[in-house]
Structure formats: structure tokens, C-alpha cells
């Protein structure tokens, strides 16, 4: 992890910097024609990506056709699987990389980013 404070969210043209996909993974922008769409998201929820967040995220991800991958360092999870997301164990104040690949990747980016970046309101029930 870099020591410099990253933004809460931000598109990343080059996904090779940690955290995220290992070096050599394809970079790109929106849509499968240009490779996967990636965005770095900082987890500000004080409980991290806990099961309720994982549930919301995976349910939303399944509404899209594109492949949804969440990277925590060099570990990755299928974003459509709540089990995968829990096992990814994303702690608070961590940066993850959201990677989307498929025809509707651009449409999925904002709603999925919003779930990961949310502070989760005032109810911090895990």
C-alpha cells in the first residue's frame, strides 16, 4: 500500500500498482473491446466489507452480465459471490480495485462503486 492518501474513488488507467491485479493484467477503459474497466475504491466503512455490504454488492453485481472482480492486494473475489467477498476480508481504510469486463461494465461501475465506497449510514451493525 502506498502511504500517500488516495482519493475515496478514482478511475485508474493502469491497474498494475498495488493493490489490484498483478502486473501484466490487461488495462483499459469501458467495455470488453478495450479490456476491463477498473476503479480504485477506498473502504471508509469502519467495519470494512462486512457480510451486509457483501450481500448488497453481490446482489447488485448479479443484475449485470459483465464479469465483476474485486481485488484486495493480489487476492481477488468474484463480485457476484457473497462468500468470495467475505473471504476477501477487506478491512476498513483499505483500497480495493473494482474490475468489470463485459458489455454492460460501464453501467455497472457507478452502482457497484457506490456500495463499496459507502460509509454505511449510522447503523454499523455488521
Amino acid at each position: 500500500m502506498s502511504n500517500r492518501p488516495p482519493p475515496a474513488t478514482g478511475d485508474r488507467a493502469n491497474g498494475a500498482d498495488p493493490p489490484g491485479p498483478p502486473a501484466g493484467s490487461p488495462n483499459g477503459h469501458a467495455g470488453c473491446a478495450n479490456g476491463p474497466l477498473r476503479r480504485t475504491v477506498r473502504i471508509i466503512n469502519p467495519l470494512g466489507v462486512h457480510p451486509r455490504v457483501a450481500d448488497r454488492f453481490s446482489r447488485t453485481a448479479r443484475q449485470f452480465q459483465c464479469e465483476v472482480t474485486v481485488w484486495n492486494g493480489e487476492s481477488r473475489a468474484d463480485g457476484k459471490s457473497i462468500i468470495d467477498l467475505i473471504v476477501l476480508m477487506v478491512m476498513p481504510d483499505t483500497e480495493v480495485v473494482l474490475e468489470l469486463e463485459g458489455d454492460d461494465a460501464a453501467a455497472a461501475l457507478e452502482p457497484l462503486t457506490e456500495i463499496l465506497a459507502a460509509a454505511d449510514g449510522e447503523d454499523y451493525t455488521i
Binding site: 462486512h50 457480510p51 462468500i83 467475505i86 473471504v87 476480508m89 478491512m91 476498513p92 455488521i126
Partner: peptide
């Protein structure tokens, strides 16, 4: 101790998958 809680959940899920 939310960190402990999250780690325990992860351990259970990782084992049970």
C-alpha cells in the same frame, strides 16, 4: 472489536466453503 468479528466471519466462511 469489529476487526476480530470480520476475521472470524472470514475464517468461518473460508472453512465452510
Amino acid at each position: 472489536r469489529p476487526g476480530d468479528h470480520l476475521r472470524a466471519l472470514e475464517a468461518v466462511v473460508r472453512t465452510m466453503r
